[in-house]
Simulated scan of single mutants.
Amino acid sequence: MGIRTKFNLALFFVFLLGFAVTGAVSYQLLQRNARAEVVRHAELMMEAALAIRGYTVNQVRPHLEERLAVAFLPQSVPAYAATETLNEIRKKHPDYSYKEATLNPTNLRDRATDWEADLVSVFRNANAATKEIIGERETPTGHSLYIARPIRVSDPACLACHSVPAAAPETMLKLYGSANGFGWKLNEVVGAQVVSVPMSLPVENAQRAFTTFMASLLAVFVFAFVVLNLMLSWMIIQPIRRMSQAADKVSTGDFAIEEFAEAGKDEISILGASFNRMRRSLQKAMQMIDA
């Protein structure tokens, strides 16, 4: 097995190991970054919902107090305002969703589904320090990430509409009836704010970046492989081959060969200089014998 073959085998195994390790690390990193990007989108959507809630309470509801005495306006309810506003986003981005999933809601569209009810149960059974749950699930439109935060009855004013039907505004009862949305208690977790964001696009982008990176890495290896082989041939294999041929001629008494260049200070140049001295010494010795 020649030097070139040994060198190429060693280079191939080193590259194969590096390619595998780099691929595994970069894949995990890109997937983690993709998930972090989705989490940021979900958190931004959640913060938007909270901002809409706050705006409704502080800026909208005070201007509707007089009308609320005559007719119940769902637009004055923070949860309704946040849901309706973010539903506008769903018209262009149906994979994005926001829901105030409640176990016993006034508006039945907010009733928690089975998996949302499980999240509410986690918040109800966990301690108050559990402020958020982040998870992933399969949906009809693909893989999605969700962020859930508990809806806790922390304001006694909420009980004016949700304690017992007798305490609720008549205008609200006319609109929603008295069968749902009651029995809430102070500091009780009654639901969860749930934001769902699709993961398909960021994951596809991460996969595309991974494929591009690995293809580029392979191209760099092929280029390096060719360059290193050319350098190996020019700097090592060809000089050694010439020395081998020269040694064969000297061994048969043929000293009519050119000396090797001694200008460099690398190992091949030193070997060439040593060979030149050996050839001259042998030539002188043969001349002395012939004399």
Rank of each mutant, 00 (worst) to 15 (best):
A263N: 05
Q31T: 11
E66Q: 10
V222R: 11
K6R: 15
V189R: 09
V25R: 09
A148S: 04
N33E: 12
M46I: 06
V120M: 01
R90Q: 13
Y146C: 08
R279E: 13
I151H: 01
C158K: 03
A167H: 08
M1D: 14
N33T: 01
I151Y: 00
H93K: 14
T211R: 10
R152S: 04
D114G: 13
E262A: 08
V39I: 15
A219P: 03
T171Y: 01
G253N: 08
A79H: 03
R53A: 00
T139L: 04
A20I: 12
G272S: 07
E170T: 15
E170D: 11
E267Q: 05
E170I: 13
V60S: 03
F182K: 01
I289G: 02
P78A: 04
D290L: 11
W234F: 05
V189C: 03
M243F: 00
A24I: 07
Q193K: 10
M1C: 07
E132G: 06
W115I: 03
D248C: 10
I147S: 08
T83C: 01
D290W: 10
A81R: 00
S97Q: 06
N58Q: 08
A192C: 06
D290M: 11
R4K: 11
F275V: 09
V21L: 13
R149M: 10
N276P: 13
L228F: 09
D118W: 14
P202C: 11
L282M: 10
D118Q: 14
M199E: 11
A285G: 08
N205T: 12
V39K: 15
E88K: 06
D110L: 02
Y96V: 04
M288H: 13
A126M: 09
G183V: 02
N104I: 10
N58A: 06
A42Q: 09
M46H: 15
K265C: 07
T83Q: 03
L108G: 02
D118E: 15
H93P: 09
I151R: 00
A129Q: 06
Q207M: 11
E259C: 04
K284M: 14
P239E: 07
E138V: 12
A256F: 11
A179T: 03
A34I: 14
E204I: 08
L201A: 09
A261F: 03
T83S: 11
M286E: 07
L232R: 11
M243Y: 00
I270L: 11
G264I: 13
Q28N: 06
W184N: 07
R137T: 12
M288T: 15
R124V: 02
E267R: 02
V220W: 04
G54I: 01
T252Q: 12
R67S: 12
Q59W: 13
S121V: 00
S244I: 08
M235K: 10
K92F: 11
T139M: 09
P169T: 14
A291D: 08
A10T: 06
F255H: 05
A166C: 14
I133Q: 02
M45D: 04
V153A: 09
T22S: 02
L16M: 14
L282W: 03
E84S: 00
D118G: 10
A273F: 04
V164R: 03
E43W: 08
H93V: 12
L217C: 05
